[in-house]
């Protein structure tokens, strides 16, 4: 079956200036990623690893530097982001942003916020038709219809998050890109929103690309997880499998760093320092070298590529086979 999203060698480089020489920051470096129809894929990694840039590339908010990006079989990577914004395919991929306080226009009522993309993308023109679509979206996210006249400051955090989701699904997208959708919410509200998202995915048959740094949350709502480090996917596999049997030393360190009361007093080795520079990194050196507890001579001789490490599970590490014995 054709995947909904098929990215091949997707790259995004930003030009930076170092003195007189120009250099490139490799934010996303030759990534292959597919998202199936109805599938939910999680994207995790430290800040600066390129996960948000990759999400923005796939959402077609920014242009790719190189590589191919197909959406439902048609090449959308070549369309400039500026033109994509008004193309009919724009409705197919929608984004839910991180902080509902920042991403809602304070001067728009809930109705205006949700109606805007419907009108902009020309999905409905008549007043009655637009109203119908807005109310349907509000029903979908469980927001009472009378809230449509309210402004963002009259809403709680959870309600604002619902508006952000309603606005994204109002145009009936096939892929929802969720950039840390619950990180600004209290746990009391977070679980409601996660349930809502899980429910919407089933009801509307949408695919999700879920970006988050909270691994316990990502695990709940995704089928597969991709772990990124310095612009590269270093491990990808079924969510439960990646959690239960992480093979890459970086994935292991990430999972070991999740706070857990059961580990009280125990001191697992921590990942110290920060990632090396993303500016023109050496293509023959593993990106994780220098921080990796399992590093050997070969890690600075050749960059490891993604290799199968179990069912649907791929790891980019020279020492993935020995991973079970690693700290």
């Amino acid at each position: 079956m054709t995947p909904l999203i098929d990215a091949r060698g997707l790259s995004k480089r930003f030009a930076v200036h170092r003195g007189l020489k120009s250099a490139h920051l490799h934010a996303v470096d030759a990534i292959d990623l597919t998202i199936g129809v109805g599938e939910s894929v999680g994207l995790v990694g430290e800040s600066g690893c390129g996960k948000s840039t990759l999400a923005r590339l796939i959402a077609r908010l920014i242009d790719t530097t190189s590589g191919e990006l197909a959406f439902a079989g048609s090449d959308i990577g070549a369309v400039p982001a500026r033109r994509f914004a008004t193309s009919p395919q724009r409705a197919g991929i929608q984004v839910v942003f991180q902080d509902p306080n920042d991403s809602l226009n304070p001067g728009f009522t809930v109705f205006q916020a949700v109606a805007d993309p419907i009108r902009q993308l020309g999905q409905a023109t008549g007043r009655a038709e637009v109203t119908d679509r807005v109310m349907q979206a509000l029903d979908d996210v469980g927001l009472p219809r009378e809230f449509s006249a309210r402004y963002p400051h009259q809403l709680s955090g959870g309600q604002k998050a619902r508006v952000g989701i309603a606005r994204a699904i109002a145009v009936k997208p096939r892929l929802l890109v969720l950039d840390e959708p619950t990180s600004a919410l209290d746990v009391s509200v977070q679980s409601v929103i996660l349930r809502l998202l899980a429910d919407l995915r089933v009801r509307h048959g949408m695919s999700y690309l879920f970006v988050s740094h909270d691994l316990n949350v990502v695990r709940l709502i995704t089928d597969r997880i991709a772990v990124m480090y310095l612009g590269k996917i270093v491990e990808i596999g079924p969510s439960a499998d990646v959690f239960a049997h992480p093979r890459h030393p970086y994935t292991r360190a990430l999972i070991a760093a999740i706070p857990d009361p059961a580990r009280r007093g125990a001191r697992p080795p921590r990942l110290e320092g920060s990632a090396s520079s993303p500016i023109d990194p050496d293509p023959s050196v593993c990106r994780f070298a220098g921080r990796c507890p399992a590093e050997t001579f070969i890690c600075r001789q050749s960059m490891p590529l993604l290799k199968a490490a179990g069912r649907d599970h791929e790891v980019a590490c020279h020492h993935a086979e020995a991973a079970e014995d690693m700290p």
């Binding site: 009391s188 679980s191 996660l194 349930r195 909270d214 316990n216 949350v217 999740i258 857990d260």
Partner: peptide, 23 residues
Amino acid sequence: RRLFAATPTADTTLDTLSTVPGR
């Protein structure tokens, strides 16, 4: 109890994750 049940942990699933009702 409610707060604990709403906090995702390593063995939570979406079905066992509960909410804190009201505000």
